[in-house]
Each structure stands twice: as C-alpha cells, then as structure tokens.
Design a protein around this nucleic acid. Structure first.
Length: 290
DNA sequence: GGAATCATGTGAT
DNA sequence: ATCACATGATTCC
C-alpha cells in the first residue's frame, strides 16, 4: 500500500499557483450567479486584485472574468449542443483498429494484450515523475512503449496520488525518473506542441470494455463535450451508461484521454476522480486555447 | 422542482 | 453472490 509513501516532496518547487486558482474557481462556482468582481474575489483570498489578476492570467491565458464566463453552467451546455453529435459517425471512419491518429493531441494508442493486463503490470517497468502543470502537480507515468498514466494532486497530496496510481498495476516495478517523464509533461500541457509529425504514444492498460470506452473518449474534439450515454451508444451498448461512468472514472491517463469532456445528460458537470474543480478548470483552460 | 427509486453493465471482493 | 459506481429516466410529493 505505502511501499512508496516516503518519497520526497522536493519535486514541486513552486506549486502554489494552482492552489490559488483552485480557490478562485471554487469560489466562482459557488457564487457564479452573483458574478463576483475581481476585487471581491481578491479580498476573500487576502490578495491584491492586481496580483491575483496576474497569477490567474499567466496560468490560464485569459482573465478571471472571461474564465468565470467559461466556467458557468451555460458554457458546458453550449458545448453539448454545439454540434448535434456528428462525432460518432465521422470519427469511426478514421479507423479505430490498431494504432490510430485521434484527438487533438494526435495520440497514437495501443492497448495491452489481455495477458499483460492479467499480470496486473507484472514484468513491466514504469518510470514516474512529478511536474508542474496548469492543473496542479501532475504525476506522469511511462513505460518504454509510451505514456501510461497521468494523474493530478493538490500540494501535499502527492503520496496519496502516487498510491492511487500504483494500486492499479500492483505488480509493476516503479522507478522515480523525472528526467524520463519530463518530455511528456512538457508536451501535454503545451498546445503548440500538439502536432502530428511526432505523435504522442500512449499505452492503454485496462480491460477490453474500459479500453473501448477510452478510445471513444479520444474521439471527442477539443472544445466539445458528450454525455455518458453518448459514449454508451458509441460503443454499441446503449444501456450501459452507468458502466461507462465507472470506466471513465478509472481512466489512468486523465486529460490526455479527455475524460473531463464527459458531462451529464443535461449539461451538468458530474463527478471527476481528481476533483470537480479540476474538471471545471480543464474545460475553462481548453476554451481559452481555442 | 426536488427527493426517492428503479433499471442497468462491469469489475472487485 | 453481492456491492459500488463519475448515470439516466420515472414517479412521486
């Protein structure tokens, strides 16, 4: 359980930014009806408005006000309505069998063989490292075949976060190697590097059903969203929306596999393994990239 | 409207 | 077998 619980926390030199942003988003979420002003927010956090403005903009690339707008419920609903789900049919033609180019990150993915999955990661060497990201400290995990895991934690939570991930493949061997994972982290959170000349390689480690769900998620384009039942329909089991929810929740490579783009039927933001606030943050951040 | 309730598929125990 | 789920639709107040 905590074979690795005693790792050092010196990997996060300046991780306070997301904590600030997180509190801002929480506050906005609770009171977005009132459209709180920048001054009001800053006062609540004991910060000067200008300082807060600066931090926020550097983080998200857009002002707190614009972000407030993006985070509002209406925005999520608009994402759903925008295009009346042509994404199912169109994306299937891209060809899902074998490694395929999907998603805005130009991910090529391959699933593990059933045998490898059964071994629960046995005989697999997984390197991991912590890096700063727009959404707090990111835990990046990779095998020699590609990116295998991506998780998030608030500062101080890193041990639990690592624990959460290692439990998924209990028999794998884990090596801390920040040098090896750094290129992945850099690539993922820098939209300018989302090009097709050097696709991001990911390894989907999960059951057959889970992999199908994750592949379906990969087809959701940037700035769009689908419901859980859309996904269920897409994988040919229209009544399995609940099972889909469970599978989405176990997606090991959050953000790269855009699980944050799965919404409730009516546009509500429903649960997220790493926290609803982070889900909101990701949707807002993406709307700023477009 | 909102709470309670059921139908529902997978995976873990 | 049984239970917990990042759901969704229906049925009651």
């Amino acid at each position: 359980m905590n074979a690795i619980a005693q790792f050092k926390t010196d990997i996060t030199p300046e991780g306070a930014d997301y904590d600030t942003v997180r509190r801002v988003i929480e506050l906005i979420t609770e009171e977005y009806r009132d459209q709180p002003s920048l001054e009001a927010i800053a006062a609540r956090l004991d910060q000067s408005p200008t300082q807060l403005q600066k931090t926020f903009t550097r983080w998200a690339g857009l002002s707190p006000k614009a972000f407030l707008q993006a985070v509002t419920l209406d925005h999520a609903k608009r994402l759903l309505r925008q295009e009346n789900l042509p994404l199912l049919e169109t994306s299937i033609e891209v060809g899902l069998s074998g490694p395929s180019r999907l998603h805005d990150l130009f991910v090529t993915h391959e699933a593990m063989s059933p045998g490898e999955w059964k071994a629960k990661g046995g005989g697999l060497v997984i390197r991991f490292g912590f890096h700063q990201s727009p959404f707090g400290t990111a835990l990046v995990m990779a095998t020699d075949r590609g990116l295998a895991g991506l998780a998030f934690s608030d500062s101080g939570d890193e041990a639990a976060c690592l624990d959460d991930m290692t439990c998924r493949w209990p028999n794998a061997q884990y090596v801390e190697d920040t040098q090896a994972t750094a290129p992945y982290a850099e690539r993922i959170f820098e939209p300018g590097k989302w090009t097709c000349d050097q696709p991001l390689r990911v390894v989907l480690i999960g059951t057959d059903f889970q992999v199908r769900v994750w592949e379906s998620l990969l087809k959701i384009p940037l700035g769009k969203a689908v419901t859980y039942s859309d996904i269920a329909r897409d994988i040919g089991q229209p009544t399995a929306m609940r099972a889909v929810g469970a599978a989405v929740g176990r997606n090991p490579i959050s953000f790269v596999v855009p699980c944050h783009r799965a919404l409730g039927k009516n546009g509500d933001l429903t649960g997220y393994h790493w926290g609803l606030t982070r889900k909101r943050a990701m949707l807002g951040w993406e709307s700023a990239q477009a």
